[in-house]
Amino acid sequence: MQHLPDETLAALALGEAADGAPHLDDCPACRSEVDSLRSTADRFRLADLPALPPPAGVWDRIAAEIATDLPADAEAPATAGASAVPPALPFTPSSGAARGLEEGAEVTSIDVARRRRRRFSAGALIAACAASAAVAASAAVVVVTQLTGEPRSIGVSEATLDPLGELGPSVTPARAEVVEQDGQRLLVVDVDALPEVDGYLDVWLLDADAQQMVSLGVMDRETTQLALPADLDLAAYPIVDVSVEPYDGDPTHSGNSVWRGALGG
């Protein structure tokens, strides 16, 4: 028996009168194909949804958030929302404060400075954006002033980081310490050996509920020093976390942690 062509089966599934209809009475195979295409069409109808314009203001928040990624001398976003974009962070190649910081402090790189604001939750980010001009300006002044003094390193807070997760059994406990150098707070993470990972290791600070987190940067050596954002309240982000992040372009925490511990006095 000759089966019906695909096109006829689809037409029958959509309720079009087609020449092949009588064949269905005799052929379970074609009948079940029509049924299956019909339920696909039904499911399609149920799953379809019309586009819904997002409320005004959503684009402005997106524009403000991506503006924190852009260097100050890059082309400014030429959009309606861009007028709400706050001034860029002070630690940019064109900023005198950034050059002074680079020469005076060994470990702060522009990349770290730009990167470090990236991963607040949406709410924290909006607040950070609104306040960034004022906060950033005062931070820059403090840095420049203190650079003229003697470099000093003062222990502020430390933590033992316990191994956890899949890689936990293969690593030994790590240490983290917050130090102050040239007016800049740094988190120093010390491990006995770096584990082999599929991706890279990323250092985070989490709040106590693990609801908000901020990425400090990549851990690629046994002693890694990372700059802390000037306006970050350590009491609000007391947990140090090191995660394995795949190279997938996804900026959020992978959920795959290797070490974690709480900072204490």
Binding site: A51, L52, P55, I62, E65, A122, T252
Partner: peptide, 27 residues
Amino acid sequence: YALACRAMPAHDAEDVVQQTFVSVWRS
């Protein structure tokens, strides 16, 4: 936004739209 509204209250859906396009930008 329509997809997110199907999954959660509108207020949270706005955040998802924002996070999605920020991820699009960063990736």
